[in-house]
Amino acid sequence: MTETASDLTETALRWHIRLRNGGDADWDAFADWLAQNPDHAEAYAEVEAMDHALDSALPDLHFPAPQPAEPQPVAANDDAPAPARRWRWAAGAGGALAAGLVLALVGGPFGEHGSSRYQITTAPGESRTIDLDAGTQITLNGDTQMVFDRKDARFARLDHGEALFAVQHDTQHPFTLEMGTSRIVDIGTLFNVVSLPDQTRIAVAEGAVDYRPDGQSIPLHAGQQMQADTAAGTARVSPIDHDTVGSWRHRRLSYDGSPLEQVAQDLGRVLGAAIRVDARIAHRPVFGTIDVQDITPVRIPLLASALNVRVVKQGKTWILKPAHGPTP
């Protein structure tokens, strides 16, 4: 034995820290380190379990406030999207565990559930998948905030943004999604939800859900979508092609007459950019599929001809204007 137990633990710890954002070479070297001695895997598993055990305690811990002298570069510009360097879109897609590690501190408004609830937030352009239990998977689109309950895998809350839900049905414990004063109770299903300040959109690909705004009940079946104006309390149900539900996961957005305003919001979430629409064309219907596989925010002008608009950049915001309107 050339290394003592505490040396070994420290080495395992350093691997654990490095691997969180490690590249190909780090992982290859880590595999080789594991191969050197069976004790290495054991020491590493111990460190990993210790770190995992922190999950339940973290939201309740108090950390010292950062020194006031330290400027907060991200919080300083409110309206700008979070810097792209923080998260890569593709890097988030693989890791249910990685997403689970990003627990944000959530404060008081949860009453007696306080400590078991945790929040997951995605930056614009980022996407994450959360496994709540073996049969229930939730994929968060960019610029989305959700709250889950560590003690209740059948609960989720969508504060804002968009998410795709693949939910395993359990009559005894129906899955409930809360949004403001509305809730959705699943009847075993695959469905997509967009939650905006004054609007909720639900599209069902498989099974059925029950949308319950303020205690009412609107059943939605596979192949149906609903658009609710939450301020006016109105909802419109229309057919939708199953295959297009949640197609944003594949960076393809499909529309069958949705207003351009909505298309711009969807694009903004997927691309991680602020996109606004000139009021004159905000309600123009859009038909067809937009493939944003190779689109990055700087390439947004490439969408101009597909959407029949003129793209103008003002500061950090892209504005879609009428293609043949007066030039400013």
Partner: peptide, 28 residues
Amino acid sequence: EQETGPVDQPRAYLYRMATNEFLLHRRG
């Protein structure tokens, strides 16, 4: 089935995915 965009450091991505699956398997 998930069609991700181009990923730099793809092996790191796959190692990470394997680790997640392994832990989910064990904890599950």
